[in-house]
Amino acid sequence: MPESSRLATDIAAILRRERHVQRLTQRQLADRAGVSQSAVARIERGERVPAIPLVERLFAALGRQLAVTVEQLDSHLDAEMDALAGRSPADRLDELGLDRLLDRLGELPHLLTGSTAALLQGAPVPVDAVEIAVRWRDSARFTAWLTVAYGQRWNARWGEFGGLYLEPEEPGEHHWMTRYGEIRAQMCDEFPEAIEVRHGERSYRVVPLVAVELTDPRAAALLRRHRQRAVDGRTPDIGPTARTGR
Rank of each mutant, 00 (worst) to 15 (best):
D82V: 04
E95I: 08
E44L: 07
M81E: 03
R92T: 04
L101I: 05
V40S: 11
D103T: 09
V35L: 12
A83D: 09
E47R: 14
V68P: 00
E95C: 06
V35G: 08
A67D: 06
A85D: 03
P89L: 07
L62P: 01
L66F: 01
A41P: 11
V49C: 05
E107T: 08
A61M: 09
S75W: 06
D103R: 15
A79C: 03
A85P: 03
E107D: 14
D99E: 14
E80G: 02
L93I: 06
R92D: 01
E47W: 12
A61W: 04
P53I: 13
V55T: 13
E95Y: 06
L96M: 05
G46C: 11
L77D: 01
L108A: 02
P53G: 11
R104K: 15
Q72H: 03
L62I: 14
A67L: 10
V35E: 09
Q37N: 11
R100C: 06
A90E: 10
S38P: 05
V35N: 08
L66K: 01
L101K: 09
I52E: 14
L102M: 03
A60N: 03
D99K: 06
I52M: 15
L108N: 01
R48A: 14
A83W: 05
E71Q: 07
S75T: 00
R42T: 13
D74K: 01
V49R: 14
L77S: 00
L93T: 01
I43G: 09
D99V: 13
V49L: 12
A90V: 12
A39Y: 11
E56R: 15
L105R: 08
L73T: 04
V40C: 12
A83H: 09
T69R: 05
T69Q: 02
R92H: 04
D78G: 00
R104Q: 15
L101N: 05
